[in-house]
Design a protein around this nucleic acid. Structure first.
Length: 644
DNA sequence: GCCAACGTTGGC
DNA sequence: GCCAACGTTGGC
């Protein structure tokens, strides 16, 4: 019943087993069994274990839950092992499915993890030898391989910080620094503490003791009453905790900071230069051990000064933290995402259903994305799934199945605050895009699943807001007319080509029209710049404005070379290559509601600095273009609403 | 600030 | 038992 990792000799040297008890939820008290291979691979089920070890390894005699081998029933002990202990063979379909996954997985692992083959053979051999009754495994699966694998998984390594030699535990995690247990623990504690300093401050430094905002720093100047009222404000620069380590300076005392020259052999030094890559990585041997960096956006003199004054080490334990006497952001704004949801949509209770922190509340169950039943199989999250041959590291829902309503509620705290003023970006919107996100808002931010490789912004000017009233009361959450988001259609290879089947083209326009506020879609710089591999497959398309007049004037990546070049998200799930320029009413019914081509919403908050700057550059141009086409647009909008 | 990784939990 | 995926956290 140990919650910690323990050796599992039944699987061979280096294998570990852990039993984890669920601490909450409906399955409280239930336990899960996890295994860890000599190379650090996490195994969560017998299926995964079989997949990992390969089909040649017979796990029939292996009790996954107990971590032991069930030896064949000796004739002298007929009751020792009940017959039902022998696991029945898997279903043919499932076996086939797993086999496919295994093949893909093997291909995937071929290059990066080829060195892991030996441990696999080790476990296989060990299991086979231990289970003497099993004749399927090859006894020649080399003891030498076992020895080498064992040696490699426990090879002594040198801590990059303190320099001591220690035995590598083989835990597979993408860490650039090799640290001993103690240094790793210190680093983690330091990171945790830095977060706390950023969130609430230490409470005893000079900055934390300042009672009032300075009123003159950039943060204070940008503050709006609405921000303060809602808690969505950033902390005065002079009141930011002095114990936050500043970026780029480092502690100056650790081994990394004191190293003067690049090592020349780390992955950073050996990395071939990439044209256009903005970020310049520092040699691994020269990175500060404490590593935590302050936001470069801060850039205040105060920050520069205080680091030189504050000793970088050691961080005081979190237990010594004293609650600040003054009001901080965390005192006003809730800290958990669920709380923040309530916090943000409180004014819209008439329209928004309350959210709780229950996991299923990430699904509204009604939007096109929720109704979509099939994974696209092509987005990065799908590719990570074992069934698609992935490594199960991201563990996220297919991007095209992530709830749209949830995204709206979580990501649009400004929704409902529309002033109904004129065209263009309202001050509040503009302000939001420029302000640093407060700590609470950072927690509001969705984790990777709902970050999206696009964005934008702002409804077109004019009387379209009135149409919202006609669409309310449909049981779905509607965005406010001036909501800062758009729908983006899955990409295709041409500017106005609507991807996927006709279902997609039907679903999206209808939903967009229901949302009343026509959302303008513009191809924007992507979030995932390094993983994108299909640069031309996202295009700017409107959600329901498809008139040729508008198309000609609508800024798209393909049509407007002035827009920042972007790396693109992988293409949509199914591309039929058929252009969809027709009116939405002419599209064919969906085979499956919310089928391919599900629109995805993102938040303007998630935009990084680069993207925001890009947005600033093209938004005025967009508005100009929109103004040109406004008349035609509203004419068409009216026609569409009549159709609907 | 962002996001990849992964512990954990819900549900089939 | 197994898989999907939510939510947290460590790293950059």
């Amino acid at each position: 019943m140990a919650e910690s990792w323990q050796d599992c000799p039944a699987l061979g040297p280096g294998w570990k087993r852990r039993e984890s008890f669920r601490k909450s939820g409906a399955s409280f008290g239930r336990s899960d069994i996890y295994y860890q291979s000599p190379t650090g691979e996490k195994i969560r089920s017998k299926v995964e274990l079989t997949r990992y070890l390969g089909p040649a390894c017979d796990l029939t005699l292996f009790d996954f839950r107990q971590g032991t081998l069930c030896h064949p029933i000796p004739k002298t002990h007929p009751l020792a092992v009940p017959s039902k202990k022998k696991k029945k063979p898997s279903k043919p379909a499932k076996t086939k499915k797993q086999q496919v996954g295994l093949q893909r997985s093997e291909v995937r692992r071929e290059t990066p993890q080829g060195e892991y083959k030996a441990p696999t053979a080790t476990a296989l051999a060990s299991l086979s030898v231990s289970a003497s009754a099993s004749s399927s495994a090859s006894a020649s699966a080399s003891s030498s391989a076992s020895a080498s694998a064992s040696a490699s998984s426990h090879a002594p390594v040198c801590c990059e910080n303190c320099g001591i030699h220690f035995s590598w535990d083989g835990v597979k995690r993408q860490r650039l620094k090799t640290l001993c247990k103690d240094c790793r623990a210190q680093r983690i504690a330091f990171n945790r503490e830095q977060r706390m300093f950023k969130r609430v401050g230490c409470g005893d430094c000079a900055a934390c003791l300042v009672k009032e905002d300075c009123g003159v720093c950039s943060t204070c100047r940008l503050q709006l009453p609405s921000d303060v009222a809602s808690g969505l404000y950033c902390k005065c620069e002079r009141r930011r905790c002095l114990r936050i380590m500043e970026k780029s300076r480092g502690c100056g005392v650790c081994r990394g900071c004191q190293t003067q020259e690049d090592c020349g052999h780390c992955c950073i030094c050996l990395r071939s230069p990439r044209p256009g890559l903005k970020r310049q990585w520092r040699c691994l041997q020269r990175r500060c051990f404490w590593g935590k960096r302050d936001s470069s956006k801060r850039g205040s003199k105060v920050a520069s000064q205080r680091h030189s004054q504050a000793p970088p080490l050691p961080p005081h334990p979190a237990s010594q933290y004293t609650e600040p006497t003054e009001l901080h952001i965390s005192d006003i704004a809730p800290t958990s995402p669920a709380e923040f949801i309530y916090y943000c949509v409180d004014e819209d209770e008439d329209e928004l259903q309350p959210y709780t922190n229950q996991r299923q509340n990430r699904k509204c169950g009604a939007c096109a994305a929720c109704l979509r039943r099939m994974d696209c199989g092509r987005c990065d999250f799908c590719c990570d799934k074992p069934k698609f041959g992935g490594g199960n590291q991201k563990r996220q829902k297919c991007r095209w199945r992530q709830c749209l309503q949830f995204a709206m509620k979580r990501l649009l705290p400004s929704a409902g605050s529309g002033s109904g003023e004129g065209a263009g970006l309202r001050p509040y919107q503009t302000h939001q895009t420029h302000q640093k996100r407060p700590a609470s808002a950072r927690q509001l931010q969705l984790s990777s699943p709902l970050k999206a490789p696009w964005a934008v912004v702002t409804a077109p000017p004019g009387p379209v807001r009135d149409s919202r009233k006609q669409q309310a009361g449909r049981g779905s959450v509607l965005p406010q007319p001036d909501t800062d988001f758009v729908f983006l259609q899955e990409g295709t290879s041409s500017a106005m080509q609507m991807p996927g089947t006709a279902a997609a083209c039907t679903e999206v326009p209808v939903q967009a029209a229901q949302c009343s506020a026509p959302s303008w879609v513009v191809a924007l710089p992507q979030v995932k710049q390094e993983t994108a591999d299909a640069p031309e497959e996202w295009t700017a398309v409107t959600t329901f404005l498809t008139s040729s007049t508008l198309q000609s004037g609508f800024p798209s990546k393909a049509a407007d070379p002035d827009l920042s070049p972007v790396k693109q998200e992988p293409p949509g799930p199914e591309e039929d290559g058929e252009e969809k320029k027709d009116d939405v009413s002419e599209t064919t019914p969906a085979e499956e509601i919310g089928g391919v081509g599900t629109p995805v919403i993102t938040e303007i908050f998630s935009l990084g600095g680069t993207r925001l700057r890009d947005a600033e550059a093209w938004l005025p141009r967009l508005h100009k273009l929109l103004a040109v086409n406004e008349k035609e647009y509203f004419t068409e909008l009216q026609l569409k609403e009549e159709v609907l």
